[in-house]
Design a protein around this nucleic acid. Structure first.
Lengths: 342, 342
DNA sequence: CTGAAAGCGCTTACAG
DNA sequence: CTGAAAGCGCTTACAG
């Protein structure tokens, strides 16, 4: 059942049916009602595919995910992003196309989908420093919004959360407990999130009048094994240089530290204080419960989607970037609050 | 740049270009090479949108997610499913459309997308007993594959994992340790997964010659709070009826139990043995590390996608259902293995 | 082996 | 206010 069937039954032209379906001006009330009735009766639905060809739109927005396991671990909250973006997008009649692709093939794949006309816009999480996908899309004037990265060369819109401030607060929590040797087990620093976290760490130390010591600054993947091995290395430092507190870049890294600390017979937070990042569902149930930071992924996803849709509609996107606050959740592992008996 | 531009530059007709692009027979080698060269030179990409209209396909398959938080919790491994499905689907040139929608609006939304011609097939996780979406799609002869549910009325294909056997093994682990009062804190039993788990539990008790006691059979949401409150109720039972071991329906439920057990001053696994389900990333780092079951989500997702694509291609799908094994991961919380000192 | 023509189901100036 | 016509960029019998 096509628009022609509706037209015939309602005794109007297809053009008129089209106007009614798209709520355009210039159709008599009586005609409009007649068309509506027929549409209703036949349970007619416009063919999005045909509509897309005629309007040169795809009514789809893309969300790109890296498929490398190591990168996925950094997104324990991925479904929240999907949910938030999907919500906004579907309210506006767009569909959400998920592009899951190994990091190395990503750019080629994305550009292919764009050229094939399959997408009207794209949301890109996990863009790393030196990645040229943003430029490539900008050349084509293709609407894009980046999530979780900033400082991109040109005017591409982005949303992020306040990694810098979150780590500043986490580190300060530890410093306020009297720790003087606080280590940072950062994630990969080519992620802008991790560069920001490092800056927050440095700012906290400076505010406390403590110099940054390179040997306490580690960087690596977001997994538990990294936490375990790095903590062992740190604990093997001579007495006066050994850290008494750790700011970990993820809850998984923190879990690895917790594990290694137990092997060394250290009490957390008594002998070693610790914070994580992400607030995974089980973080509150670690032993001790983990002080960590929670990113406002839902807000970020909604904002990104809204900015993108506005850009697609040809509106100017102001502001072109948003930084959301990140919430620090204080539990027992930092020794800075929360009653807890082992 | 369209197929007409290519045709003009290669001095052939658009029909011939189309044949070359689609690797069809009946084009001379020299002509084929000439067309290919022009395509290459202009970096031409076929418009999927136009192609879709002409072929009456959308080249997209849908994956539906419930958005209710309570249902999402049951999918700590959702991104794995996305990844697996996305992989298979994109290898075949399909795109993956994600439909995120509150459970109550799901069926209407799905049928709308189908009628709009936006999808060639659909993968449905989380179909509950009494849900009529399967019938509605079958009426339209629309390709669909269900993930994680079975016993559906008609011949719709499905993939699932062996919930029954997994819980049988978990319960047996506890029974073999000498526990006689083993409780099941099951998830919502309108999920076929949970009905199966209950069956596995009963089978284990029967094999051990122990009768099922209703008061030790609990059902509720997959969250920690449920685990906490249910464990308290169970521990308040009179001495001789109180369980000494718990099979929990998720790692989160188990985490809640762990928490409540601590409040009661009980040692796990000494005073109370415990198992979870899902093997969330942090499950190995709970205190004690959690014995749990790991679903082969990647295998399930790949299989579902492959079955769906075969069905779309008009092939018969044999077998029409697959049950994958579920792996039990033995750690300290069940008291049945793994060295661990608190 | 090659191409002209019709068609997929819409939308959009444009004329009346 | 309404409709005829052209067009979106492909594919597919069909004729030569």
């Amino acid at each position: 059942v096509t628009i022609h069937d509706i037209a015939r039954l309602a005794r109007v032209s297809p053009a008129t049916v089209s106007k009614v379906l798209n709520n355009r001006e210039g159709v008599g009330n009586e005609t409009r009602a007649r068309v509506r009735a027929v549409v209703e009766e036949l349970d007619y639905r416009v063919s999005v595919v045909a509509q897309n060809l005629a309007t040169r739109r795809s009514q789809a927005i893309g969300l790109v995910f890296p498929l490398l396991a190591s990168e996925l671990v950094m997104h324990p909250v991925l479904w929240q992003l999907i949910g938030a973006v999907g919500d906004v997008v579907s309210e506006q009649g767009y569909s959400l196309t998920l592009i899951t692709v190994p990091a190395l093939d990503r750019n080629q794949r994305v550009l292919g989908e764009v050229q094939a006309g399959r997408l009207d816009g794209i949301i890109l999480p996990d863009v790393r420093a030196g990645d040229d996908i943003i430029e490539r899309l900008a050349e084509r004037d293709f609407p894009a919004v980046v999530v979780g990265s900033r400082d991109l060369v040109n005017g591409t819109a982005w949303v992020d959360c306040d990694h810098d401030q979150a780590v500043y607060e986490l580190a300060t929590l530890l410093l306020d407990e009297g720790h003087e040797r606080v280590a940072l087990m950062n994630g990969p620093e080519e992620l802008s999130a991790c560069a920001l976290r490092r800056a927050g760490y440095q700012r906290a130390l400076e505010a406390a009048g403590i110099g940054v010591r390179e040997e306490l600054l580690r960087t690596g993947p977001f997994d538990a094994e990294y936490g375990r091995t790095q903590l062992k290395e740190l604990l093997d430092l001579p007495e006066g240089r050994r850290p008494t507190a750790i700011v970990a870049g993820s809850d998984l890294i923190a879990a690895g530290c917790l594990d290694a600390a137990r092997d060394y017979g250290l009490q957390v937070p008594g002998d070693l204080a610790l914070t994580g990042f992400d607030d995974q569902p089980l973080a509150a149930f670690l032993h001790p419960p983990l002080t960590t930071a929670r990113m406002p992924i839902t807000d970020m996803g909604r904002a990104a989607a809204e900015m993108l849709l506005r850009r697609i509609a040809g509106e100017e996107v102001r502001p072109a970037s948003i930084v959301f606050p990140t919430e620090v959740v204080v539990r027992a592992s930092s020794g800075s609050g929360g009653r807890w008996a082992p």
